[in-house]
Design a protein around this nucleic acid. Structure first.
Lengths: 335, 335
DNA sequence: TTGTAGGCGTTATCAC
DNA sequence: GTGATAACGCCTACAA
């Protein structure tokens, strides 16, 4: 495997000149450049990235840590982030945390190995109590709802506002007993509690009572768990004419449970989700939802991270970014 | 940021001893080990992976190149591969090729930068004509249907057999005019042609005519494209009582198109897919499909790659592995 | 059991 | 415009 020295020798120049040519530095005479490129070609030379990384103190790779790549929302996010990173000349390595706190903390220290130039961490297991763990000496961007006001940049979803809009939409379609399917509400700040808050706000604004009975809690945001819990609650007699699901994936489970119970959507129950995953438009009935503009959030996260990597110092104020959203009305709410 | 030298100094030993402790080498006196570990802890030392990579000539990272991570099948695959790689002590970096031949070829040469120890390449754009490009000097495993008999290990799906079983299932359920929704059949070896062959075999075995009219070709394996083409063909008068879809994603598009046309599944048309993606069980109607055991294929691919990396030589015979499958009967075929 | 020397391949610096 | 030198931080030999 040819090294830069081999090329230099073959082209009758110094290694430095080869390096300059390869990295597109100015101040190389065209004729010299030609000769070098010819030699590069002839020897099939490729730079050794490990050596370059060592020398530059950069790896050109960032890490994306998400619960599991095989979930519509995180897949969507990853695709956007990989694409955005490529635009910044960065590669992306993916770490799966399984939504476990310890794995999220491990991801934080992995980057300390200088394995990655920076980390985009989707916090699901970590909570406000772990803010201290974020105080690391390498660039980190948090993408999640569990931690606010930490010592790092934060890209968040428009949780409350979008949830309020989704719930309001159900109200406007005539729903009066609106359920919510979410995770356990433990008082901590997380996706469920934020979206639940938006739901409550919409109910209050519409003058509807907030019946705690209508809160269906699932252990995880999976189709399986959502379907199971809704079936259970319906068997216990829970009745509702609208349901706001914390994610589209959860909504898919709910749609399935309703179908099993012979409930027609949207005639008897209207359903709305959150995320606007690709599948949502193709479900039968197609799923109304709110679209948080994943591409924009991904772009923002990568841009923030890239900027910190570039500066490689403490840098300016930490940024807190909350994306926009739009309501997507489809069949499941009678759209 | 502390280096191994700093630790050595702090512990009053040589860098070599620190290295030995870190890498768990024997022949280090317990007392010395203690002192070193204490210093490591105190200074917050982490090895510099770039330096280690340079020295070792390994990066500990493999590349997974897939069309797009945000597609149920590739998401599923990626999740399995990342998990399998972790068991082998390997990290996974993901490259999105967009199913474009040139990007797949680029992935092949990326590894040559010694950026990655090996590559798992999902070939979709490349064809048999590109077999030559596979003749590289670093470990590669092909995961796909476009290339057989190349100079590298190959993990393939049970395309024909599983497609035949899926189609046979439709026959057994009483279907007589069975359509197939696949990609363009250009004579080349690819997912569509292999699964189409299985479909034909099942028809032949059942003594059913193979009406070319019943072949619906889509430009890509997306819900959108599948739905669009099926709508078009139905508008042109195409009639069928069963349909085999080359992937579950395609099947979702088809289910949507049928719903739009007011066709009831499975009463009027039975539908079966391929992949057994997570969503399939929760669709309404739930989707019958064939399950190719993604975990096993992922494990096999990673094991083959890891073995080649370990040997780091030409190694033994190239391996051709075709996974098993099982039929999953659900509502869409009246299950 | 521990230490010394050297080099993996690249590039920043500075001299020419 | 080009080249010599010196690291970047680690680990494989070998020596002690």
């Amino acid at each position: 495997m040819a090294t830069i020295q081999d090329v230099a020798k073959a082209a009758g120049v110094s290694a430095m000149t080869v390096s300059n040519v390869i990295n597109g530095h100015p101040n190389v005479r065209p004729a010299t450049r030609e000769r070098v490129l010819e030699a590069v070609d002839r020897l099939g030379y490729r730079v050794n990235v490990a050596a370059r990384n060592l020398r530059r103190g950069r790896t050109g790779t960032i890490c994306l840590a998400v619960p599991e790549i095989n979930r519509p929302y995180y897949g969507r996010l990853a695709a956007s982030i990989i694409a955005a990173a490529a635009r910044h000349g960065l590669r992306v390595s993916i770490e799966q945390t399984g939504a476990r706190r310890e794995n999220e903390l491990a991801a934080l220290s992995l980057s300390r190995n200088r394995l990655y130039d920076g980390l985009i961490l989707s916090t699901v297991g970590m909570g406000p109590a772990d803010v201290g763990a974020l105080d690391v000496d390498h660039p980190v961007v948090i993408l999640g709802e569990r931690i606010f006001g930490g010592p790092v940049d934060h890209v968040a979803m428009p949780n409350e506002a979008a949830s309020e809009a989704a719930t309001r939409h159900l109200v406007e379609r005539g729903c009066r007993r609106i359920a919510i399917v979410c995770g356990r509400l433990g008082g901590e700040v997380d996706v469920s509690s934020l979206r639940h808050a938006g739901y409550l706000r919409a109910l209050a604004a519409a003058g509807l009572p907030a019946d705690p009975e209508l809160v269906v809690t699932a252990g995880s945001f999976t189709m399986q768990e959502a379907a199971r819990r809704v079936r259970e609650r319906m068997a216990e007699g829970l009745a509702f004419d609208g349901v706001f699901c914390v994610t589209d994936t959860v909504a898919m489970g709910v749609l399935r449970a309703l179908a099993d119970a012979g409930v027609r959507v949207p005639e008897q129950v209207r359903v709305i989700g959150f995320d606007n995953v690709d599948e949502s438009a193709y479900l039968v009935p197609s799923l109304s939802t709110v679209d948080p503009d994943h591409d924009l959030m991904a772009e923002r996260a990568v841009t923030l991270l890239a900027a910190r990597i570039e500066r490689s110092g403490p840098g300016p104020e930490r940024e807190e970014f909350t994306g926009p959203f739009r309501l997507v009305v489809r069949e499941s709410t009678g759209g």
